[in-house]
Design a protein around this nucleic acid. Structure first.
Lengths: 211, 211
DNA sequence: TAGATTGTTAATCGATTAACAATC
DNA sequence: TAGATTGTTAATCGATTAACAATC
């Protein structure tokens, strides 16, 4: 503890991608992989793959043989927290929120959505994807009672800031923000903004320059 | 033409965020902004804001006065391509695909989804969010006939690779990939992978270290 | 042993931040 | 004019790539 190298943001983004590839390889019956093989499949450099694995692996790779696929999968799953589950609430049961409540892939990422919240009385009380939709009035009570630390925000832009303030006041630790509004609370609340427009900007610009 | 400074990836991601903030400010009746004001609201540095604006602005800012909000909005909208619309198809009308077809925000980003595609016969023929769902068999025909250059991929992981290959063969130029599979076609097709797991990895790691 | 692939250390590349003169 | 904020140039910081000895 204390002196392990810090993990960088780009590395954090790559780990889930490595994990998915390794799981595929395991399915195909592959037991050992080299950095160059992974790099080739993913379009990045083998030096980078090696550094990334070295940063979190418990054991060293074997020169000439590469790394054990299963061991690396275990390391990645553990590092990414996929093995123990984090409770979350989802706020805003619109089209996207509805899709998220029904999406079964969150469990594999260690996320357990305990309830949805919405202002619309016609949605309140419904069971979507096995999750109950509760009225917004119960948000504060639910969060403090259940000690939920993570909120998934899928409300419209117009109410994002207001809801985020309420979450902050309840002492929420993390907000995974899908509303098209950039949130920033500095050190108080960790916010991860998923911005469709930012993602599209990269795509369009590359397309424009390429063709 | 030819010697303007290249725009970096992080810059591209920030432009839509600036635009949204400026649009809000305009609504509030603000006509001029300084870099420091924007930096403060967004949690980044004022030097960065200035560099970002300088890279795409047609006119210089005025020392002591800052920049004109409306002019900057126009510049950003034009640069991001929000003013002319790009045709796109959406493939995979599951929960997420359905939400996207109904989402009305794409028009503001210059994206016009012309049709959805799905293998499920019960979905084919439906009109969702004003868009017709067509059978997968018609994909190639539709793309070549309409010269569509952009595909939004919202299929399950299991069929992502197969569909992507079909898109590539039709000469599609860009794939906006929401399937939990990392795609990479090098120079042939521009792929923008939107990876929930990568986004979550950043959030969880920060939460773990902070608390 | 020989070949492949590792881990480490150094060099390069890219992005952000700092410093400061220019100017509305 | 004085103050605020700009644009430019230099310094720092962070991430990736390159080089190479170590080793299974």
């Amino acid at each position: 503890m204390g002196k392990e190298a810090a993990i960088t943001k780009p590395q954090l983004q790559r780990y889930p991608i490595y994990l998915k590839l390794l799981q595929e390889l395991k399915e195909e019956g592959v037991t050992r992989v080299s950095s160059s093989m992974i790099a080739c499949r993913l379009g990045n450099s083998e030096e980078q793959v090696r550094k990334d694995f070295q940063a979190i692996a418990h054991t060293q790779g074997k020169p000439g043989l590469g790394r054990d696929v299963s061991a690396m999968i275990a390391t990645l799953e553990e590092f990414l927290g996929y093995r123990d589950s984090t409770d979350a609430v989802l706020i805003g049961v619109g089209h996207l929120g509805d899709a998220f409540l029904r999406y079964e892939g969150f469990a594999a990422l260690g996320i357990d959505i305990r309830a949805g919240f919405d202002v619309d009385p016609s949605k309140v009380g419904q069971l979507i994807g096995g999750k109950r939709v509760l009225p917004m009035e119960e948000l504060e009570g639910f969060l403090t009672r259940t000690h939920t630390r993570l909120a998934i925000l899928t409300v419209p832009a117009s109410s994002a800031l207001e809801v985020a303030e309420r979450l902050k006041k309840c002492g929420i630790q993390g907000i995974w923000n899908f509303a098209p509004v950039h949130l920033d609370y500095g050190e108080d609340v960790i916010v991860e903004n998923v911005d469709l427009a930012s993602s599209l900007a990269i795509l369009s610009h590359q397309m424009k320059n390429q063709f």
